[in-house]
Nucleic acid binder design. Structure first.
Ligand SMILES: NC(=O)c1ccc[n+]([C@@H]2O[C@H](COP(=O)([O-])OP(=O)(O)OC[C@H]3O[C@@H](n4cnc5c(N)ncnc54)[C@H](O)[C@@H]3O)[C@@H](O)[C@H]2O)c1
Ligand SMILES: NC(=O)c1ccc[n+]([C@@H]2O[C@H](COP(=O)([O-])OP(=O)(O)OC[C@H]3O[C@@H](n4cnc5c(N)ncnc54)[C@H](O)[C@@H]3O)[C@@H](O)[C@H]2O)c1
Lengths: 209, 209
DNA sequence: ATCACACTGTTAATTTATTCACAACAAATA
DNA sequence: TATTTGTTGTGAATAAATTAACAGTGTGAT
């Protein structure tokens, strides 16, 4: 049917969505492509091109209506069967994530967290209870959770991933530096901050000769 | 001189570097492009193409020598004048970063952290002392720090960025969701985990129809 | 009314990134 | 020695992403 949707377009649409949420909160009703593009650090043409994916149309006179464009993007991006998220590993990173995440996405919710440390089990952080990792398969299946965040040490990441996938997880955000071996239908995104800083350091210097 | 270097190539080179470090620790001396490519989830051709940026050559018989290829990539990626990193904001995220980062990059070191909360000032975490944010300009100038990680609340991110840039920072890794307004010579990378999870959720569902 | 304007949506052109296809090569084998 | 094998490095081809160019359109000024 559709031609393949690229990662970059989706990243940009999600960014536009964020910006539009802010604009809506500020009570701004309409916006032109060049204004929104500036806020997103893209060209106006690219923005308009990206919006072609949606079935949404602005007006040459008043530009885009913030609320309806926002809805159109949400509609395109959000898949309601991927709304529930599990978090594995309640160490430094896991807690930072949990404290930050809840309520920040209109659709996505972390509805369970897991750890192997009994000190952490049964604690409730940001409205989310922590269960022992051994309960993960049954809870993930029962709640039909499809998305997981991995924040366990590198040495446990692969075994945790195997277990999650076995239980039905199809999307993983992996904060450990471990490269995961997963079946083809599972989507994995890696977030290693060391790599991120190295990239920044390279391009910062590169830009300045 | 050279044609422009793309972000994706650099991200991949950094990933190859990581993998090669692991291989070196495992005592593996040589590796073929198809093996390394598999570990990095790229095609062998792409890997070889990427290595064309380096002035490094493998052998048709034994492939690449792990140690020398690693050095070649380090040589290409690491710019010694961007080795020092500052961290601003010692909350949940800041502490997670500090605990994780030190010693994981051969070149980069977080040599100072800053917070406005006097409770945190003078604490030493992972060998890095925390200073009051008001001291940031002088320390950054004195130590000639060029790279910074921002982990303060969204509401303070722009003012912190302005101050850092004024003090000489040219590369920022921004963990707050705030879009920063910066001069053209400053490179900014954004790491918002809500956006990341939303991307994962989209593509996980997309992949599975 | 009509014109100039400022904007959107989209086709076409261009640039960038990836993949294909193969020459060159060194070792192993017959 | 000649041949086969498996690899690298890269020019050429293809695919993907971005940018340019412009037709269409409602608005407000003249
Ligand atoms: N991407 C980043 O920015 C970043 C930053 C810091 C750390 N990290 C990585 O994230 C991961 C977590 O880092 P951290 O600083 O939070 O570590 P941590 O040691 O503070 O926390 C790890 C948690 O995982 C739990 N755990 C360990 N094995 C488990 C298992 N098999 N099942 C369930 N839970 C298990 C531990 O009990 C602990 O609570 C590490 O892999 C680290 O390398 C990433
Ligand atoms: N990218 C992610 O994965 C992720 C995850 C969680 C939080 N966040 C974001 O990262 C930022 C920090 O989150 P957190 O959970 O660590 O928050 P936090 O409240 O735990 O920590 C913020 C820290 O910044 C300090 N601070 C505030 N204003 C400051 C200023 N002007 N100068 C210096 N220090 C200042 C505070 O004293 C505090 O120590 C927030 O913007 C949050 O939105 C990002």
């Amino acid at each position: 049917m559709n031609s393949k949707i690229s990662e970059k377009v989706i990243e940009r649409l999600i960014l536009y969505k964020n910006i539009l949420e802010d604009l809506e909160n500020q009570g701004i009703l309409n916006i032109y492509s060049h204004q929104l593009a500036k806020m997103a650090d893209v060209t106006p043409v690219q923005l308009r091109r990206d919006l072609m994916l949606l079935s949404y149309y602005g007006k040459p006179t008043s530009g885009y209506e913030v609320s309806t464009l926002l809805k159109a993007i949400e509609n395109f991006i959000y898949k309601s069967d991927c709304a529930k998220v599990a978090l594995v590993g309640l160490g430094h990173v896991g807690r930072a994530i949990l404290n930050y995440f809840q309520g920040r996405s209109k659709l996505l919710k972390i509805i369970a967290s897991f750890d192997k440390d009994y000190e952490k089990v049964n604690r409730v952080i940001a409205g989310c209870r922590c269960y022992h990792i051994s309960e993960a398969p049954s809870i993930i299946k029962r709640e039909d959770i499809k998305i997981a965040i991995i924040a366990v040490p590198q040495s446990s990441a692969q075994e945790v991933a195997d277990m999650l996938i076995e239980a039905g997880i199809i999307g993983i955000l992996n904060y450990s530096p471990m490269r995961l071996n997963v079946p083809a239908n599972v989507y994995v995104e890696y977030r290693d901050m060391v790599r991120a800083v190295e990239k920044v350091a390279f391009f910062a210097c590169y830009k300045n000769q």
